[in-house]
Nucleic acid binder design. Structure first.
Lengths: 340, 340
DNA sequence: ATTAGCACTGTTGGAAAATAAGTGCTAAAG
DNA sequence: CTTTAGCACTTATTTTCCAACAGTGCTAAT
């Protein structure tokens, strides 16, 4: 791959990203000061190398998956975020009132809006939350709400109907025992310690301990299971992209976009999980016709993922710059707030 | 409208619901024991009355909006829910563990699944919740979580960063004042009473009362604003319906389905809000090409709406029977649990 | 190594023709 | 007065054909 060939591939990818139309040899002559035949010769090589493809024998060239990959790895210039893009995101961070997790969601909404791609936020309170306390709030004689709170400020609640043979006071007493025994326990170890340590204790002190025990066990379990939130913005935005101009394709994609929770799981072995990741086409393990650009974040005891879903022909450098900017801003806010 | 004409319209609507193809006169001869010419004559009358339409001068007939309306009002037979449909929903209610609001969501997921329409659950803790208590949980010296709980067991929480000049104890003290003064206040009056009654009191007792006041004010406000949840299932399901077979239509609908919160607001004046409502086409105030069937529910201090979105040509009686069944089951569970 | 020239190939769009489905109307029959 | 057979007519749908077009690969010359 000499320099001209690199430049040619770069040009093909970028023109295709802009126009969504197969790139012919003539269109590139002027840029490279040579004839279309020369371009064609070089294109033939790039095609042999697997970086570009033809839709049919006499069509212009389209980047292949390998071509995009080569592009993002070696050819793409790290573009600085543009002023107008930055401006729109800055407004969000200017407002210090906003909780960080809300700020993230807002950011991704804006990114979807300005880019016409689909954006996703997957938040999950992470393992490094520790139990701070569990409160029981009695609504009446046979209903209680258990409120679980972690040291990072994540709170989850669950309501229970008490059977007639259970007294509210016994539930409260149990909560006190749990608080004494388990404060500071990492949230994902709570279930185990409940079973091994707490159960024997309340067995001795509480009548009907099984029922009461289950209330708390369920509440903690809910916390671990439930405490994730998904925000998808602009599901329909991606349909505006010209590649999705046929009914079957549209339906297929709409169906897949129903559930995007898989995004956090995509992983290619030896990766550094905290970098911006680009999954092109099949690499996404989602759909051969989309690219997913993803960044994991960790703030305030919450692990999460932000991602943008677009066509393979998406504006890679712009999205990368946008995600980088958001991440940067999050980092600086973390320091300022003194959290994490 | 004599009987034959009614039957003819009923047949046209039902055949069209089944086949999604315009119904011609020949197809109905056998059913009515007469020639196609006779049917045509009657059809001409139904068309004059505005109940059926032609796509073009020589096509079969399609029910008009007025035709569907006439059908659901006078012709549709209240169908009992089928055994297999019932069976699928019963599984959910068999599990008494499930909180009612979760059971509703599950039901609507199943309904979307078995009917291939889009289903929606819009829940909102209603005005008839009263403040039970507000708790302050201190995470550390400068972070607190405010937990607001109502008598119906709805809980909302919000984390705050305290400025350096505010002491946690002052926040807690304020929470005690609020608890004393406002317990039992309907949740939508809390803001007003905070401003009119609580503010003057804490002004006297708390340094930096403005900041502390705002924490609670925000927390309550969040409760009112935030405490709604939307579940949409099968957004893409509706695309399988044959009427949405062109790209523009699909995109338009996908876009609209991004936000379905409007559904609870659709209302036609003198209606009894608690009945099953059918909004056909333009009546839906959403999209001329869909029908929305909706039922409002009230359980356990939560007001909500369940709805099914489908083509105008949707299976009206089946959906009505399904929603009726769900509503019935909810009612019986309410009584059993002794709630509400 | 580059390029002009040319034959070739698949796409796109439109026109024309054939087919199919179903109507409205008329006139006759019941 | 209602029903029906018959037929001319309308429109949508599908197929076929053709021309224009964009772009390629290859060859031979520079």
């Amino acid at each position: 791959m000499d320099e001209r060939r690199n430049n040619l591939l770069k040009e093909i990818v970028e023109v295709y990203i802009k126009t969504a139309k197969p790139v012919g040899s003539k269109a590139l002559c002027s840029k490279f000061n040579c004839s279309s035949a020369t371009i064609r010769n070089e294109m033939a090589v790039l095609e042999d190398l697997g970086y570009i493809e033809k839709n049919h024998i006499s069509s212009g060239r389209v980047p292949s998956e390998a071509g995009y990959r080569y592009y993002v790895e070696y050819l793409m210039e790290a573009e600085k975020i543009t002023g107008s893009d930055m401006l729109k995101l800055q407004k969000i961070f200017a407002n210090n009132e906003l909780e960080l997790s809300d700020a993230i969601t807002k950011c991704m909404e804006i990114i979807s809006d300005i880019t016409n791609y689909t954006s996703v936020v997957l938040g999950k309170s992470s393992a490094d939350n520790a139990l701070l306390q569990v409160n029981i709030i009695a609504l009446n004689d046979n209903q209680v709400v258990a409120v679980v709170c972690t040291d990072k400020g994540n709170v989850e609640n669950k309501m229970f109907n008490l059977p007639n043979n259970i007294n509210v006071n016994e539930v409260i007493k149990t909560s006190e025992i749990i608080n004494k025994m388990l404060v500071g326990t990492p949230i994902n170890e709570v279930s185990r310690r409940m079973e091994e340590e707490v159960k024997p204790v309340i067995k001795r002190q509480i009548r009907q301990y099984e029922t009461v025990y289950n209330i708390f066990y369920d509440a903690f379990n809910d916390f671990v299971v439930n405490n994730s939130n998904i925000h998808v913005t602009g599901r329909a935005k991606i349909f505006e992209q010209p590649e999705y101009n046929d009914v079957a394709e549209l339906k297929r994609l709409a169906n897949k976009l129903e559930d995007v929770s898989f995004i956090e799981k995509v992983s290619h072995d030896d990766d550094d999980e905290n970098e911006i990741k680009i999954y092109i086409g099949d690499e996404s393990e989602f759909d051969p016709n989309v690219t997913i650009i993803r960044k994991k974040y960790h703030i305030n005891g919450e692990d999460g993922t932000i991602a943008v879903i677009g066509p393979k022909r998406m504006d890679y450098s712009r999205i990368v710059s946008l995600l980088e900017y958001v991440d940067e801003k999050l980092d600086s806010r973390k320091e300022k707030d003194g959290k994490d």
